[in-house]
Simulated assay, not measured.
Amino acid sequence: MQWKKAIFSLLLVIFVLVVLLAGLNSGFAHFLANTYHGSDTISSIELPRNAQGVRQDEMVSTKVYLSWNDSLLAASDNQSQGDTIQNIKNRGALRVGYNLGFL
């Protein structure tokens, strides 16, 4: 076996793979940059208007948290047993969340 040729071939294959992967990564990053607009879709959702023409989100106070805080759960989840609808009414809040990766 010719060790010099084998090592040279192996190094050449590794080099070509590294260059190919780096090129693909760079190309995808360039051509696919800023193509995700899921958060814009969520942000632009408007609730329907009631019979008086007032949107539901104008009648109910809302608060948006951009990250999860454990104190949010502890402060508002003291009635975790029983009927879900009754718990929401007792709490006075409906918590809604979504996973950024799977809108």
Rank of each mutant, 00 (worst) to 15 (best):
M1V: 14
A29C: 00
N78T: 15
S9Q: 14
T41E: 04
S26D: 04
G38Q: 11
Y98K: 02
S71T: 13
G101F: 07
K63C: 07
D40Q: 12
Q2E: 11
Y36P: 06
L21D: 00
A74Q: 13
N78A: 12
S43M: 03
E46Y: 06
M1N: 09
Q81S: 11
N50G: 03
L21Y: 03
M59R: 08
P48V: 02
K89T: 14
L24G: 02
L72C: 01
L73A: 14
Y36M: 09
S44E: 05
Q2V: 10
N78W: 01
A51V: 06
V96P: 01
L73M: 12
F15A: 15
L103W: 07
I7Y: 14
D40T: 13
L21V: 07
F28C: 03
V60H: 03
V18T: 15
Q56V: 10
S76K: 13
A75I: 03
T35N: 14
A6H: 14
T84Y: 06
L11E: 06
N25W: 12
N50Y: 04
V96F: 13
I88Y: 13
V54S: 01
D77H: 13
K89M: 14
R49N: 05
K63Q: 12
Y36W: 12
L103C: 02
N50Q: 02
F8W: 09
A22W: 01
N87C: 06
L72Y: 04
K63M: 13
I88S: 07
Q56H: 04
V54W: 02
V60K: 05
A74P: 02
S67H: 05
A74S: 13
S76G: 12
G101D: 08
L103I: 09
L24E: 01
M59Q: 14
L11Q: 10
I42R: 03
V60E: 05
G53L: 01
Y98N: 03
W68L: 03
D40P: 02
I45Y: 08
R55M: 06
F28N: 10
H30P: 01
F28Y: 14
V64Y: 13
P48Y: 04
N25C: 02
D40L: 15
V16H: 01
S80V: 03
H37C: 09
Q56Y: 08
I88E: 08
L73S: 11
K4S: 14
I42V: 11
G27K: 04
R91P: 08
L24V: 15
N87E: 04
L20I: 02
L12D: 05
R95Q: 13
Y65V: 12
V18S: 08
K63W: 10
K63N: 09
G23H: 01
L103V: 07
S9F: 13
A75S: 14
V13Q: 06
N99D: 09
S80A: 07
N69M: 05
Q81K: 03
L66T: 15
G27M: 12
S76D: 14
E46F: 02
V16C: 05
L24K: 00
K63D: 09
A33V: 10
I7M: 09
D57W: 05
T62P: 01
G23Q: 04
R55L: 04
V18Y: 07
